[in-house]
Design a protein around this nucleic acid. Structure first.
Length: 440
RNA sequence: CGGAGCGUAGCGCAGCCUGGUAGCGCAACGGUCUGGGGGACCGUAGGUCGCAGGUUCAAAUCCUGCCGCUCCGACCA
């Protein structure tokens, strides 16, 4: 993509409404613009990141056996009256009325809807287990939206729903999601720690929040140091195997947010523990027959008995992750994207656009990288060097490849890694092969 | 929802207290010079001062109501 033609409205100054760093950087990097409190438009650069995260979530969900669907944003009030949540949900639910005076709502979540789908089309115990998910916009009329996309009213969420015959089977489905989540976050370059959460009226221990560590996180986190050394992507996972040992391995180590942490009962000594701040980016829970019962979601057993299905739901805040990743990965100059979610792989900076020799080298690099499938943002604008470097540091692409008259004369270009900032003068070919070796 | 603050050019802000018809920096546009980390100079353009009402000869400024946005707290992917 040529930057001269790309809609990338970067800002030198921070708009006054933005307080936390991810919000400031997202506005300054031209990723989003606020439409109203807690509601954002995604501009080209931000939209690319959102899609990258979405793709990773899709891949990891499907690797874990979940199947993608797409349910509507608008739901009928009747559906929610059946589960009792139409009244229970309170003012956080956005209620709408159509031209026939029928009550609708903008979905804050989809348990009722998916349970209805399963009820209508699953008849036999043989059809289980099932796990369906979608990535869809949600609306929750938060009392106080804040922190940019981190707590919006309209937000993009992945929500998966598992259906099983009984608790033991549901626990297996839960474990699959547990392990899948660890791998998903790790793949995005995030250190996520699962923490036991309140599981509501159902009870039991099957509810976990996934918290990523970031200095600017909303809540304090206390966790066993060993959790940081565990790599969920180290081993190949067979999702058909018994995952209980892996889950145990994680859940047996101490981890708590400040609401639950009690120094008096904490088993860790100070040097065994990390104190950090965290952001919740996922939440999984088992809820048994909470929805299958009121909605009548059953299957026939071998003996003809009708059995209520046991459900679980599993959320990942996709749009929140965009902010979360920035919170976890930035410096004074701007964003530092982990490679896999970066909107482009390489910032190709032509320091003297219009100069024949520089243009030739830059265009050649652009073509070769593009042919190899590397995504390049080519800064071909007629701007001063400082402006280009500042913009590229701000938007945080993993590589900066600088072509300038000085280097071109000597047959070299400069390759900079955004994370770490180390720069190298390299021959054009070796710069190229260094990027290609890494990216392909 | 309780508490606090803000709303003046695209962005960041001053002016308001003490009423006299709007200004600074950046950005934009035209030009000259410049050219490896947000450069310099000259010029140009851009405003229902959030909205409505009131007080006054006169309101960005004082008063009332409303709207919007932000922050702190209780709640949440």
């Amino acid at each position: 993509m040529r930057l001269s033609r790309y809609f990338l409205p970067t800002l030198k100054e921070t708009p006054s409404e933005a307080q936390i760093v991810s919000h400031r950087l997202m506005l300054r990097a031209g990723m989003v613009r606020q439409a109203s409190a807690g509601i954002y438009s995604w501009l080209p650069l931000g939209f690319r990141v959102l899609k990258k995260i979405e793709n990773i979530v899709h891949e990891e969900m499907q690797a874990a056996g979940a199947q993608p669907v797409l349910m509507p944003t608008l739901q009928t009030a009747d559906l929610w009256r059946k589960s009792g949540r139409y009244d229970a949900y309170g003012p956080e639910m956005l209620r709408i009325r159509d031209r026939h005076d029928r009550d609708l709502l903008y979905g804050p979540t989809n348990e009722e809807q998916i349970t209805t789908i399963m009820r209508d089309d699953i008849r036999s115990y043989r059809d289980l287990p099932r796990n369906l998910y979608h990535i869809q916009w949600k609306f929750r009329d938060e009392i106080r939206p804040r922190f940019g996309v981190m707590r919006g009213r309209e937000f993009l969420m992945k929500d998966a729903y598992s259906f099983d015959l009984d608790f033991e089977a549901a626990r297996k489905s839960y474990n699959i999601m547990f392990v899948s989540y660890l791998r998903t976050y790790a793949r995005m370059g995030l250190k996520a720690i699962p923490m036991q959460a309140d599981s509501g009226p159902i009870g039991g221990d099957l509810s976990h929040e996934f918290i990523i560590l970031a200095d600017t996180g909303e809540s304090a986190v206390y966790a066993d140091k060993r959790l940081l050394e565990m790599d969920p992507r180290a081993d190949d996972i067979d999702f058909d195997a018994d995952l209980e040992p892996i889950v145990k391995q994680w859940t047996s180590l101490y981890a708590a947010t400040d609401e639950k942490h009690d120094p008096a009962t904490c088993p860790l000594s100070a040097d065994e523990m990390i104190e950090a701040r965290g952001i919740e980016v996922g939440h999984i829970f088992y809820f048994g027959t909470k929805y299958s019962e009121p909605l009548g979601c059953t299957v026939s057993m071998p003996d003809g008995e009708k059995r209520l299905l046991h459900g679980g739901s599993y959320g990942i805040g996709v749009s929140r992750l965009v902010g979360g990743i920035i919170e976890a990965s930035h410096d004074d100059a701007g964003i530092i994207w982990p490679d896999v979610v970066a909107p482009f792989d390489v910032a190709l900076i032509n320091l003297k656009s219009g100069d024949e020799a520089c243009d030739a080298v830059a265009n050649d690099l652009y073509a070769k990288l593009g042919d190899a499938g590397v995504e390049v943002l080519h800064d071909d604008r007629d701007e001063r060097a400082g402006v280009k470097f500042a913009d590229m540091d701000l938007i945080g692409l993993p590589w900066q490849l600088t072509v300038g008259p000085r280097g071109v004369k000597a047959g070299t270009v400069e390759l900079k890694r955004r994370a770490g900032g180390e720069k190298h003068e390299l021959s054009i070919d070796s710069a190229l092969s260094r990027i290609l070796d890494f990216e392909t």
